[in-house]
Nucleic acid binder design. Structure first.
Length: 518
RNA sequence: GCGGGAGUAGCUCAGUGGUAGAGCAUCAGCUUCCCAAGCUGAGGGUCGCGGGUUCGAUCCCCGUUUUCCGCUCCA
């Protein structure tokens, strides 16, 4: 089956079985926003817990944090998001290329300057040593004409930028006959401002209000709390701060189901290290994070590192862990060496000293930072797309049967155990209910007595329940039940009193990570 | 944002210029069954939304929105 078809089936399956719904669907939906349904929220929470426990519980030098989504506006000036996230963009309709409108205009200005330089170059050749560039610039007609154009252009452009006048910016592009470098045409769309940050107002009255942003990343909440955590937690380098939380980006093109959403959840850890040791720790986390992904047993061949050739301004090393989604290898997690850029910026903008006193070296310095940043929603998509399977089962009459099954790792599955009475009489439902009442404090259990037993198994296959327990007539005699494993469909007869320990053992993630020397 | 495909019941889809159908799913009852699709019955859709053409539009036209793919973009 084509990958595209698999993806479509997966999306349908997510909706049909209560994993993911489109946001505000009754109102036709809201683009690139999704809601997690009754099973989706369980899976998502389980993934989050798996990450949290792997980072915080298993590393004594990593602690948690939950910073607010609202932050002081200066945070985003310091981080560079305010400047870097708001470019006026324009498209050429013929070449379909997108440009920053300000860059197009700057290029045009550079062309005028190049013309002047050409004139000056020619004149210098002509006049030799006696050439006076200053005088030439002031008197030559062609140079002056171009200089006027430059001045006019600069003036208009500056004014338009200051006024946020996008219509004027487009008019400048039209007036100066700026054409697309690729198609050569001047068939432009309107200029649009794309600020990737959502903004809103804080304060009860309009006058006293000030613009604040919904955070476009969670990392800054950690950086501005670095000193608080380091001092109150008596943390010594190297140490990390982990946090999960929502982030918001007004993406121009947000697509591919929950892969790129406007509201999404990140799971991040910022690891503070001594300057000069960052590469060692970069390698350490790179390795460990890959192990974590592979602990899910989705196949090592479905993961790869993608090293960044072009680094962001704050980074001196960066790699992505990519997973093979139905639409190809895509980033799930980024491991970045962010240097001391962020802490230094906050030091600069806040005027506060944000450093670490190293008792071993007996000196203060700004720590370097290794970041591991993973998209929870992408992780969700990874888990569910790797688990989705349509298995062919040969039937006794020779035909084939399709079994739709989510092969979720047991410790991530929403429902851990379903309990069925084989028939709904002879007291079997009561026994099934009592088993659930006993175990519902330990894990999510569900009861089902509707339809044939086979149908009930299949229903739970479709939502990924790893274990189905069936109460039959033998149960009334010897207190045993059958436990049926989702993937193998094999059944085993066990004592009711053993159920808790059997399932507990199988839904514990400890065994996954112990083998990995995590 | 550009180009292309799609939008009819919870899901997958059929259908016609005269106000809608199937399979699965759901619910109730029968059946009492260890791997879906046995029997009987029921509920559920202003055919994505708005406008136009028409006596009449789910169907034709225009717009819009959502979604998938490609390009583009992506701290």
């Amino acid at each position: 089956m084509a990958q595209e078809d698999i993806f479509k089936k997966l999306i349908s399956h997510c909706k049909e079985y209560g994993y993911v719904f489109q946001s505000s669907e009754v109102y036709d939906g809201l683009a690139a926003v999704y809601d997690y349904g009754q099973y989706g929220v369980e899976l998502k929470n389980n993934i989050k817990k798996y990450w949290w426990d792997s980072m915080v519980l298993l590393h004594e030098n990593v602690v948690g944090l939950d910073s607010a989504i609202f932050m002081h506006p200066t945070v985003w000036k310091a981080s560079g998001h305010v400047d870097a996230f708001s470019d006026p963009l324009i498209d050429n309709k013929d070449s379909k290329k997108r440009y920053r409108a300000d860059v197009l205009i700057e290029d045009q200005r550079a062309k005028f300057e190049a013309k002047i330089d050409k004139e000056i170059g020619k004149a210098r050749k002509r006049f030799g040593d006696s050439f006076d560039e200053q005088q030439f610039r002031e008197t030559n007609q062609r140079v002056l004409a171009n200089q006027v154009k430059i001045n006019e252009l600069t003036e208009r452009f500056t004014k338009a930028l200051n006024d946020d006048d996008l219509v004027e910016i487009k008019q400048i592009i039209i007036d100066y006959e700026i054409s697309c470098p690729v198609s050569g045409t001047r068939n432009w769309t309107d200029v649009r401002q794309f600020n990737l940050m959502f903004s809103t107002e804080i304060g009860s009255t309009a006058e006293g209000a000030s613009t604040i942003y919904l955070r476009p990343e969670t990392a800054q909440g950690i950086f501005v709390n670095y000193l608080n955590v380091q001092k109150t937690g008596r943390m010594r380098l190297p140490f990390g701060i982990a946090q999960t939380g929502k982030a918001f980006r007004n993406e121009i093109v947000a697509r591919q189901f929950i892969f790129r959403m406007r509201e999404f959840e990140q799971m991040e850890m910022q690891f503070f290290v001594r300057p000069g040791e960052e590469m060692k720790w970069f390698e350490f986390w790179k390795d460990l994070r890959m192990k974590w992904h592979q602990s899910l047993n989705f196949g090592a061949e479905n993961y790869k590192f993608h090293n960044h050739e072009k680094l962001a301004h704050y980074a001196n090393a960066a790699t992505d862990i990519e997973f093979r989604f139905p639409f190809g290898f895509r980033e799930v997690e980024g491991i970045h060496s962010r240097t001391d850029f962020d802490l230094k910026q906050h030091e600069k903008f806040s005027g506060r000293k944000i450093q670490y006193f190293d008792p071993e070296l007996n000196e203060s310095y700004t720590p370097y930072v290794i970041e591991t940043s993973i998209g929870l929603d992408r992780m969700f998509l990874q888990v569910i797309s790797a688990s989705f399977d349509e298995e062919e089962i040969p039937k006794e009459n020779g035909t084939k049967d399709i079994r739709t099954v989510l092969r979720l790792p047991a410790f991530l599955a929403p429902v851990k155990m379903a309990v069925f009475p084989l028939v709904k009489k002879d007291g079997l439902p009561d026994i099934a209910r009592s088993i659930i009442n006993e175990l519902k404090f330990d894990f999510y259990c569900q009861y089902d007595e509707k339809d044939s037993i086979g149908k009930r198994y299949r229903r739970h296959d479709a939502i990924g329940t790893p274990f189905c327990v069936t109460v039959d007539h033998q149960t009334t005699e010897d207190q045993t039940v059958t436990i049926r494993e989702r993937d193998s469909m094999k059944q085993e007869r066990v004592k009711i009193e053993e159920l808790r320990s059997i399932i507990r053992e199988k839904v514990n993630f400890k065994n996954k990570l112990k083998d990995l020397d995590f």
